[in-house]
Design a protein around this nucleic acid. Structure first.
Length: 140
RNA sequence: UGGUGCGGGUGCAUGAUCGCUUCGGCGCAAGCCGGGGAGGAAAGUCCGGACUCCACAGGGCAGGAUGGUUCGUAACGCGAACUGAGGGAAACCUCAAGGAAAGUGCCACAGAAAAUAUACCGCCUCGGGUUUCUCGAGGUAAGGGUGAAAUGGUGAGGUAAGAGCUCACCGCUUUCCUGGUGACAGGAAAGGCAUGGUAAACCCCAUCCGGAGCAAGACCAAAUAGGGGAACAAUCUCGCGUUUCGGCGCGAAACGGGCGGCCCGUCCGUAGUUCCCGGGUAGGUUGCAGGAGGUGCCGGGUGACCGGCAUCCCAGAUAAAUGAUCAUGCCCCUCUUCUGGGGGACAGAAUCCGGCUUACAGCCCGCUCCAGUUA
RNA sequence: GGGUCGUUAACUCAGUCGGUAGAGUAUCUGCCUUUUAAGCAGAGAGUCGCGCGUUCAAGUCGCGCACGACCCA
């Protein structure tokens, strides 16, 4: 499989799979976005998206696509592999990849500094540099 | 030049890289190559159809919808042209626009009276009295006042005062003639006026409508539970008796259910193995992308639209693809002169079409009318 | 995909066949009481979700929107 691909098999699609993550997973919270993750022991991490309270289909789709793109570029920095669900509440309407990335970085740092508890998904480094290279963008 | 009105179009573009999805080809496979990939409203689900299943002799009732006429259409509550009414200086715009002399209901407050006709203040005549006033009988509907609305309007004659009582003009009704497929228009004669409003009140008239919907429907079909049939096997627990030691007989108890408000009581039932049949859930396949299809030309029609020829194939997902980043250009806004900063509407297909309604930044095109100026 | 219903005072709800929008709770003022609560008397307040229409007159009738709730498969 190509390194940056994200086929359907890496999406969480069944209701019972979501239920398992919600019941057994751990959470990173922020006011408008919650990330729930559960280490699976598989080879690849999988993505689930849950959006509540966004009225129009266009904005719902936009949020979904941005989060999927973010996950596609950063999938390999999640170790060990896990099922990750992004739960979006009303008010969180990012307009670019950068917004999501900054928010997720803050949430990860906050959880490390806060309780001293180490998250099992030790995300090594945020992704912009390798992602940019992969996109063929000259570094500034 | 400025503004008004009407109609139509467009809905950022190009390239590179990384992705998603579908179709075709190659490949044992991993995958690779090539083509396609949101809208004018995809939306609201307000109408009409196609399609599918169910129901159905015919007809009626009930219920619902529509409502000027004639066309168009598969059909419509849609569209076109025309007619009538209303608005505007005009271009043009708006109208659920059949029936109130078939019936029923309602018309608050005010007012004498709200549809039956009547008479508060008045006006006039006659009679009486306590005679600057008042009572009774009668005539009248012109004036006042009330109201959203008051029983044809204006003028003249007429009269005690008045009144379509009479006349002229206007309006209305009826009949006839002419033009038009028709709604209707124009004209003539007669009637002396009958017919207040409300049908988006009930209703009457005319026309139309069987019901449900792609989560329709068709096919394939796990696991678990259960249904029908056949074969084998055969009454499991406890106690007693018996035995040819395979069992058999009797009794008891338990569990589930029915009757019953509940207890008591009473009635019914109870296990295994294998095979076959049928229904059917999850899930999958199909329906599901060639169509009342698009584009161009020609012809018919005032027009909606119709016909002919040529040409094209143009989204098919299933928790649901159509995206991200960067660069260049285009168009706006703002601050400022620097290769500055910000922005590019409304909005996302879900069986498919025809409409309606609602949302929508800008930009472009055509026609029309009005005003000003110049020639 | 299809269907039903609702929206009226700060809150919970009435409002018939079109004719001056009401009730309870809450709030405020006064009385009573040592004070509070209770009680008594009084007051304030509404673009009837929004727009257009029918009508002399619309919360009510018709149409179009918006928001909310529920039902079926």
């Amino acid at each position: 499989m190509k390194p940056l691909a994200l086929p359907k098999s890496l999406l969480i699609r069944q209701p019972w799979e979501y239920r398992k993550v919600y019941q057994e997973g751990k959470r990173l919270r922020s006011p408008r976005l919650t990330i729930i993750y559960l280490a699976t022991g598989g080879t690849d991490s999988r993505l689930g998206i849950s959006i509540h309270g966004i009225k129009t289909a266009v904005r719902r789709n936009r949020i979904k696509r941005i989060i999927r793109e973010f996950f596609r570029l950063n999938r390999h920095f999640i170790s060990p592999a896990a099922d990750v669900v992004f739960a979006v509440r009303p008010g969180f309407e990012p307009d670019s990849l950068l917004e999501v990335q900054q928010l997720v970085e803050r949430m990860l740092l906050g959880s490390k500094a806060g309780s001293g508890r180490k998250p099992p998904t030790a995300i090594v480094a945020p992704a912009p540099v390798p992602a940019a290279e992969a996109l063929g963008v000259p570094e500034k």
